[in-house]
Design a protein around this nucleic acid. Structure first.
Lengths: 361, 361
DNA sequence: GTGCGCTACTGTATCGATTAAGAACTGAAT
DNA sequence: ATTCAGTTCTTAATCGATACAGTAGCGCAC
């Protein structure tokens, strides 16, 4: 940013007043020339604009205008992960697209807020010039989440723990997995393994013990609960189900996670992955080891991204309306609310394809 | 945004002054409590923050702070296409990731600016509270581009026509295609066809005549020039090379474009696609028609996105450092410049894979 | 007891616009 | 001549913070 303080310049800045003085009109008229063409004669307007260009005036200062108007026409968006990662996550991206689709025609800007290396530093949230926030998948006590709520602006929480002050949109994370596990158990599976994205913010990779499965992420907690209900209904102890946690949601990490799970003494016959990306990695590992899918191992994903239908074999997964989550979150903010903030829970659907089947005998 | 003018409220807004009065300290001290903890005793600070919370104060108003500081720590990003489309374009996305990677650790926010349905409406650009702009692939006379330059803030143009007032980063769009065409001509190809993304902003799909090939997009112009030089060196008239233009850069459009080209009386034996996405579509069409690639038709892409190496057959394409373009654009702004704005042209490389080969006999 | 340096706060000018209300003028109708 | 309604432009209050220079008070050295 070149640290270019306006105050550095020795020569006084060109402002509306500069133009007004040069044209011998009032500041208000110059302002109107830019923002309300109907308030002055076209001739005067073009003369003012010409003078502005001549004096190298950059137009009304946006910050000053926002201060005066009390409206920024901007929504701040905060993701779990670092921005550069979030943009590689198909689901995060789809949610963002869903938001963009709605805000775009309303001419609302989207402010992507960086999650600082130091997560405790909330200044990017505190100093953000926005009218409202959308939070995606932030842990319950995340400093960024708290900072956003502390701003006392309208907030929509997507895929996180609801807050009484904020609107909420999410999915039923539980029942899809419960159904999936139930069906697989019915097909003879007794040894399940779980591949998940982070359960905590510490960047740890590896098997997650029972305490850790009570994640700080609402989504993870719910999904674990769904799986747990499913396996326990089949008479399997939750503690006997290995859960492998990946620090980042990516195909490469799915590869490693599946390897770790399949290396166990009693390897799972069904791998439940918390995203399609992880599932693709798991399939890659299985195929590399010469295992048949689903003959030797069943693999399921979550999300139903477009690639899931095209994989080999096509991936059994749980479809969630990721883009609609973005649509709805944006719509909530565009419409606003007065009393209690709105909440919407969307349904999921198990999509049975060919990556799952009967347990091996 | 709920049209929530601050001025609507009957009760006066809670500001720094409110807290200051309630605590019998000066406004400056309250400001320091939020922004410069070292300027007051910790005890007083916690008391002030407690009172602020009690009075439901949302923290110092961001717009006011920005006005006073003269710095927003925000970069505005403007894309060619509508935001929701840009986010589906692998290259646009990669550039954005490249930008994010650099800005994130500097705690700089990224403002995604909607391209209004009405392209002439530049208010989203004019009212954007930013320190600088990055423009991606905007046509020379695009209103958004002009509006951004008119703000007289630092601007970096990525993949567009340079401007004396703005920094620039782009690639050598020309030589890669020239080399590609030259080699294919050497392998006996005499009938080329081109599949391109938009040459103009009118959303037209179909064959592009010579006039239209002189695109408003600098990138398109350069690439056409590269191809033209290549084919003419092989003794082929540029006018005899059919160019099919797609209104949106997507695989589906590549399918249709290739169909149109292959339906010609003298169908091309080599399809030069302006993106890998379009090339995938073209391959899809060719395979669906039972044509061998490259036996019956050679197909090339542009960009070298990761999927290009994994396609069947693997795609011959021109690698461009899309993410680095974002890195460099962001770095330009983070470092700033004083005299002439910096410019960087990055090299491309033809990646020969199996989707191209000798012309059929 | 004077002077020095330090900490902890205060006073106030300033950032650059927007907008409601009002004034001055023109022209037409009564 | 008077009223009335439009235009077109002006006046002035206001948005909410930041940061610099200044001051009061205090402890300590000589």
């Amino acid at each position: 940013m070149g640290k270019k303080h306006k105050h550095d310049d020795k020569e006084p800045a060109v402002t509306l007043q500069t133009i007004a003085d040069a044209m011998c009109v009032s500041r208000a008229t110059v302002s109107n020339a830019f923002n309300r063409p109907d308030q002055l004669t076209p001739e005067l307007r073009v003369k003012i604009l010409a003078k502005a260009k001549e004096l190298k005036y950059g137009g009304p200062d946006a910050a000053a205008a926002v201060l005066r108007k009390g409206r920024t026409d901007t929504i701040g968006v905060i993701f779990t992960e670092a921005l550069a990662y979030a943009l590689t996550d198909p689901v995060a991206l789809a949610v963002l697209q869903g938001i963009a689709r709605e805000t775009e025609e309303a001419e609302i800007r989207l402010l992507l807020i960086p999650t600082a290396a130091d997560r405790a530093d909330t200044s990017p949230v505190r100093d953000a010039v926005v009218d409202s926030f959308i939070l995606w998948s932030l842990p319950d006590t995340d400093p960024q989440r708290l900072a956003a709520l502390a701003r006392r602006l309208p907030v929509v929480i997507v895929d996180g723990t609801p807050d009484p002050e904020a609107a909420w949109v999410g999915i039923d994370d539980r029942s899809g997995l419960e159904e999936l596990v139930g069906t697989l158990a019915g097909e003879g599976h007794r040894r399940f393994g779980v591949v998940t994205w982070p359960l905590a913010e510490d960047g740890v990779t590896g098997f997650a013990d029972l305490a850790r499965r009570d994640s700080i992420y609402a989504t993870a907690r719910e999904r674990m609960a769904g799986i747990r209900t499913g396996v326990e209904a089949a008479g399997i102890a939750w503690a006997d189900v290995p859960v492998y946690e990946c620090a980042i949601n990516s195909q490469e990490n799915g590869v490693r996670a599946a390897a770790a799970l399949l290396d166990l003494d009693r390897p799972p016959t069904a791998l439940l992955c918390m995203s399609d990306l992880l599932a693709f990695g798991a399939m890659q590992t299985a195929l590399a080891r010469g295992l048949a899918i689903p003959g030797d191992v069943s693999i399921s994903g979550f999300d139903d991204i477009p690639a899931a239908a095209r994989s080999d074999p096509p991936l059994t997964t749980i479809r969630q309306p990721y883009e609609r989550k973005g649509n709805i979150a944006a719509t909530f903010l565009l419409q606003g609310w007065t009393d209690t903030p709105p909440r919407t829970e969307l349904a999921t659907e198990v999509i049975w394809r060919q990556s799952t089947g009967h347990a091996p005998v």
